[in-house]
Design a protein around this nucleic acid. Sequence first.
DNA 1: CCATGTTAGATCAGGCCGTGAAGTAAGTCA
DNA 2: TGACTTACTTCACGGCCTGATCTAACATGG
Lengths: 397, 397
Amino acid sequence: MVRPERRTVRDLRKGNRAVLLRTLYFAGPTSRHELTRLTGLSAASVSNVTGDLIADGVVVEAGLVESDGGRPRVLLRVDPEFGYAIGVDVGETHVRVELFDLDMNERAKADHPLHPSRHDVGLVAEHILSGIETVLAGSGVDPGRVLGVGIGVPGIVESGPEALIHAQTFGWDAVPLGTLLRAGTRLPLYVDNGAKTMGQAELWFGAGRGTRHTIVALIGSGAGASIITDGITYRGANSSAGEWGHTKIEFRGRACRCGGRGCLEAYIGAESILSRAGMPAGTVDEQAALAELVASGHPVVDEAADYLGAGLANLINLFNPERIVIGGWAGLLLGQHRMTRIRQAAAENSLTQPYETASIVLGRLGPDAVALGAATLVMEEFLLGRTSPAASQPTAS
Amino acid sequence: MVRPERRTVRDLRKGNRAVLLRTLYFAGPTSRHELTRLTGLSAASVSNVTGDLIADGVVVEAGLVESDGGRPRVLLRVDPEFGYAIGVDVGETHVRVELFDLDMNERAKADHPLHPSRHDVGLVAEHILSGIETVLAGSGVDPGRVLGVGIGVPGIVESGPEALIHAQTFGWDAVPLGTLLRAGTRLPLYVDNGAKTMGQAELWFGAGRGTRHTIVALIGSGAGASIITDGITYRGANSSAGEWGHTKIEFRGRACRCGGRGCLEAYIGAESILSRAGMPAGTVDEQAALAELVASGHPVVDEAADYLGAGLANLINLFNPERIVIGGWAGLLLGQHRMTRIRQAAAENSLTQPYETASIVLGRLGPDAVALGAATLVMEEFLLGRTSPAASQPTAS
DNA sequence: CCATGTTAGATCAGGCCGTGAAGTAAGTCA
DNA sequence: TGACTTACTTCACGGCCTGATCTAACATGG
């Protein structure tokens, strides 16, 4: 039931251009000669297409490499200044906007604190728009060179003609954030779940680099997962795939804040761990409290590690991944201090063969990678050749 | 991290040929004119490529359709006699070999009973080879027109240079069935897990037809799932994805025959249901006993339905499918008599938004679709243009 | 300093491909 | 019988990738 595409001879060039661009981007400075090896294209085609790319300004020369007794190789690379990507992290306590060049170096940043009880859509949209203006002004980057804005939000993002956001914790029900923003900017917008963007950041630049069947488990107050199948973030029919935190690990078990019972999140989410240890939500600084709890060796932490291992085991059995990355602030905390226990629980609760192919590792990017991941949404479009600075326009009116 | 391919201008033709062939296959008799609409290709190209296909004998004309006041359309279709696919079902109690034409009509069949305690690899291989000979002889089909043999086996099939089969219930550990068979036949072989082949049968010809994000849950003695993501059976890093039956639904719960605890299979598998009702494995005819139990309204059946719903809910949360097909003989039995209860349990244990996009339905093909599904493995290759009768050869020596 | 050898990259002719435009086939209808 | 309609084919054209050939730019050795 595969649905192959590709039509005219022109698409060929487009595709090969994208292949070269992607190879240059991920392999770094590379000579034309080596590109023929990496892409399988003929030397003649590499010459042609790189010629186009250089003429368009996307690719620039980056020094020479001498070779024993022959013409030196000219190294090529994507010009990091050719375009820029903006990543937005809409979190519980802040709206963070970051501007990256194509090498994903942060060039500017804007932070708007958000009161934990005020997540009005209009306010968030306002923060995002003013943040975009701030980073553009602060970096001195020509707005016309910005390729787009990626936005990581909590909750489920329902794809469709207009992306609709369902975020229980924010009280958002079918909120068309994209539509609201389009009134204030003409930049292309890419909205996705924050856990998915963070997963993509780990996949591209973190602990998942080079893998194709990967799961990034994110544990903070709650728990979610980003599922990468064959190199692509899996979204399912309505983009809500990956709701790992609300899978049942204990039939009719402990009550979860989602209203259900026995959800994994009710056993491994920071909020639930703390409340089990006698520190209900809102009474303490979650991160500090959990750190202390983990260090103190409280049994509730061991229990959480066991459940986490079992939860990972379910993912291993279902997805047969080559790597599992544990991320999110609570996940990193648990992983740093209870990794052996987690791995053991995962081994006990999964089948041998898939367990052995899955390496369980800690995330490398820290909890602040949501904006970076959101920016990779923009990069993805760019590398596919579906967007370019010429197509973008600065903020409207 | 997408990895686009496509190189030369020649691949274009290959791809478009595959697109046309696939469209003709699934849309049935179609005129060239309509093919331009269905494929997006120009009329000129459709004319060219169908010309090739007809010249190669793959496609034949299939009558005319008058149109009001113009030249009548010539209908085209794939010639069902152009090639044949053999499907093999290696089950607990039999080895079944079936020969299909391209329309998936069964043309011949061979059944070898298997003693439930004797699953010697050599014996199974012998049965398969003699079954192939039998169906070829019985149908009178030219062996040179057979496109390949698809084989559905129990357990985990580890893909690689040689497919290795790990089947606990058979006592098989890393058995290279393909290699053994290749000594007796030169036909291309495609080995896969029987649950996956059955899932593919439901996807192509059964209750999953037309869907792209689908899960086929198979419940017999045990439980497994075939996960279709974006129209393709998902296999994971080592082809062992979909081990749904051994995901934990009850942390440290009931003992499972796999050695673990709290596996879903230990709550919804026929063997476990019967043993809970006081009928341990081996003492009764499983299928008859379960049917009686279901009809009698025994509470253990209701309990199983609840667990099944919760297990499906986990799949809904993780995969966000558009359809869930319940299959397998025990699954069909439960579904026929407890569908409401299953659906309700699924609703209670999954998030609202993904639950609403997933329609839960019964399988349409019955429990004998393993061989049919195995034959679709051959068809898949054929429709991609990667195999043709000319490439195949009759049995060696 | 220059001829020679070596490697990187560019250019060119040739073979394919898909497409729009124009042409042909095969009906209906009046 | 001829006008009209619709289905399909043929043709010229612009693009594409590739192997072969050519040019550029270095090292080496005399």
